[in-house]
């Protein structure tokens, strides 16, 4: 099932969501453009420290790092051999180069550092809070709206999907590599869409009945506390240091 991470009530969880989004964004951009190992390892270290403060279960974090690292493993199979550079090792007729291995290392650290920050700061925040925070940060209203609707329907459609798959199983459907299987799945998707559309129509009508005019209301209002300011200054300073470290090298 589709599940969010619960950040309980750690220090990080209580920060203003707008601050968290801005910090995560700046951090991601900074790490994505950096190339020096010192900078990347420092970024990874701070990612781990923040993760510790966020109070998320380590097991959960590892589970969520799997998709990122699957692509990285795929790239590791190629990059050491396709880079031109100093000879490092060889397997059969393939030669691995130092440059290739370093490059693969670099993107591995980058990916994981950014992901740790995303997990501890943003993924642990409730989706609706993120939506309202992004609205206040200037994201177009229609997009925020779509974001809320999509999030709501996600669970509905997924449940409906699970229900339809069960009913297919009960009727003896076994997925195989053949036309019948693909057609059955296509009809399943079609049915999801038809039911979903009917539901969206009902929901929209109900909203209009209740006086909906396209305005978003939030029950919780955001306020910047002293802890928010301190966290922001600390993180901004850290990101700035990363930037300076990177810049010293390139000039």
């Amino acid at each position: 099932m589709i599940k969010e991470i619960s950040g309980s009530d750690s220090i990080i969880y209580c920060l203003d969501p707008r601050i968290k989004i801005i910090i995560a964004f700046l951090f991601s951009v900074m790490v994505a453009v950096s190339n020096r190992f010192v900078v990347l390892i420092a970024a990874l270290a701070i990612g781990i420290v923040i993760l510790f403060f966020a109070g998320i279960q380590i097991k959960e974090v590892f589970k969520r790092l799997i998709p990122v690292n699957t692509l990285l493993i795929f790239l590791w199979l190629f990059l050491p051999f396709t880079f031109v550079g100093e000879h490092l090792f060889s397997i059969g007729s393939l030669t691995g180069t130092r440059e290739g291995v370093l490059f693969a290392f670099r993107i591995t650290i980058k990916s994981n550092a950014i992901m740790l920050m995303l997990i501890s700061l943003i993924a642990s925040t409730p989706i609706f809070t993120i939506g309202h925070a992004m609205h206040q940060l200037g994201m177009p209203k229609k997009l925020v709206h779509l974001f809320f609707f999509t999030y709501r329907y996600l669970h509905v459609i997924y449940k409906e999907y699970a229900r339809l798959v069960n009913s297919m199983k009960i009727r003896g459907f076994k997925p195989k590599t053949d036309l019948h299987t693909y057609k059955s799945y296509a009809h399943l998707v079609g049915m999801l869409l038809v039911r979903g559309f009917d539901r969206s129509q009902r929901v929209h009508n109900a909203m209009i009945c209740r006086g909906f005019r396209g305005k978003l209301y939030s029950l919780s209002s955001f306020s910047i506390s002293r802890a928010d300011i301190i966290a922001f200054i600390l993180m901004a300073a850290f990101i700035l240091i990363l930037g300076i470290l990177e810049w010293i090298q390139t000039t």
Binding site: I157, L193, S200
Partner: peptide, 16 residues
């Protein structure tokens, strides 16, 4: 506002 709920369905279907 009228077609946002429908887009939401398609968006969610793409996700699922």
């Amino acid at each position: 506002n009228k077609n946002i709920p429908k887009m939401g369905i398609l968006s969610a279907a793409f996700f699922v």
